[in-house]
């Protein structure tokens, strides 16, 4: 079986869920090798990666790798592609993950597929395009397949791998040090999961009516451990910060459960959430197009339905 590199996503030394998903996927297609880039590596992190099937863990844990925008990570992966000749490289289809994939593709003269929602035999990738209107299966035909896989594309399943650690010494080239990160600013998001990675997302739209009213969306989200999203109408009106916008020009999410409240479902929004596994809609307009993609819909006033739903969830905990 051939080796498949998985670029590890981590925050504060913790391996993110999407990486466990990618390791799970990699295992079905070959031998999974995790690639740790940047500081924060620990025995606990290695144990986690091994628990989800990493046979090897390549570690390049110098600060240098994360002090510059994207390029050093692409250099690290390019070096490993050269040294190890893997069958494929998987990264998370986050905005940064896709940029790493893009640079790596140029460096290694290899094809790249972004936003895969599934990956099968021969690295044939499933993609959902045109706002979810068309399903495509595609494959890389030159070089080492580089695939950016959307979070929540598969459920992480533990299966022990050897977890053999190998240190990789790399110093970013001068070219890779051209865009220096001088400060990281963390914006308060409380205890909620990250929007693109969350298993459950609760979003509010025009129907929410004001910034203050978003509190009822947040309460529902917190009752069920969800991230909060917003439609463009809501972010344009400055009721909710732009970084939480779900849609064509905002974030794309693909959670297990998506709850849309007061969102009509224009293509702008659907393009960002249509691959969600289960969709619940609450809207007072029975003609709203979002009902077309709802697994369960309630035609009603969100100010009645959402608080009642929140209360029911709390009651049944």
């Amino acid at each position: 079986m051939s080796e498949i590199l998985v670029l590890v996503e981590h925050v504060d030394g913790e391996v993110k869920k999407v990486t466990l998903e990618l390791l799970t996927l990699a295992r079905t297609l070959g031998e999974a090798s995790a690639v740790w880039a940047g500081p924060g590596y620990s025995e606990a992190a290695k144990a986690k990666l091994a628990e989800y099937g990493a046979d090897k863990v390549y570690v390049a844990d110098s600060d240098e790798i994360v002090n510059y925008v994207v390029a050093p990570k692409a250099e690290l992966l390019a070096k490993l592609v050269g040294d190890k000749s893997p069958a494929a490289v998987l990264v998370a289809a986050t905005t940064e993950g896709k940029e790493v994939a893009g640079r790596l593709a140029v460096k290694t003269d290899s094809g790249v597929i972004t936003d895969a929602v599934g990956l099968g035999e021969g690295f044939v990738a499933d993609q959902s395009i045109f706002g979810g209107g068309v399903n495509v299966r595609s494959r890389v035909t030159k070089g080492t397949p580089i695939v950016a896989v959307r979070p929540n594309s598969t459920a992480p399943v533990a299966a022990a791998g050897a977890g053999a650690e190998e240190k990789v010494e790399v110093a970013p080239s001068d070219a890779a040090r051209a865009a220096k990160i001088v400060e990281r600013v963390k914006e308060e998001k409380g205890a909620r999961p990250e929007l693109t990675e969350a298993a459950i997302v609760v979003s509010g739209g025009r129907g929410v009516g004001s910034a203050e009213n978003f509190a009822i969306i947040e309460k529902l989200a917190d009752s069920i451990g969800a991230a909060v999203g917003a439609s463009r109408a809501a972010t344009d009106a400055k009721w909710y910060p732009h970084q939480f916008q779900v849609g064509q020009t905002g974030k794309t999410v693909s959670p297990q459960l998506y709850i849309a409240a007061g969102i009509s479902g224009a293509i702008q929004h659907r393009a960002g959430m249509q691959t969600s596994k289960t969709i619940i809609v609450i809207n007072k307009d029975p003609e709203a197009p979002i009902f077309e993609i709802a697994d369960f819909g309630v035609v009603g006033d969100l100010f009645q339905v959402v608080p009642q739903l929140t209360e029911e969830i709390e009651k049944r905990k």
């Binding site: 069920i224 369960f296 009603g300 608080p307 009642q308």
Partner: peptide, 19 residues
């Protein structure tokens, strides 16, 4: 999907679906 009209119990029905 199933679409119901809220008759005072829309939230409860949505919770039933989630359950």
């Amino acid at each position: 999907g199933t679409v119901v009209k809220d008759e005072g119990d829309g939230g409860v029905k949505a919770a039933d679906f989630l359950a």
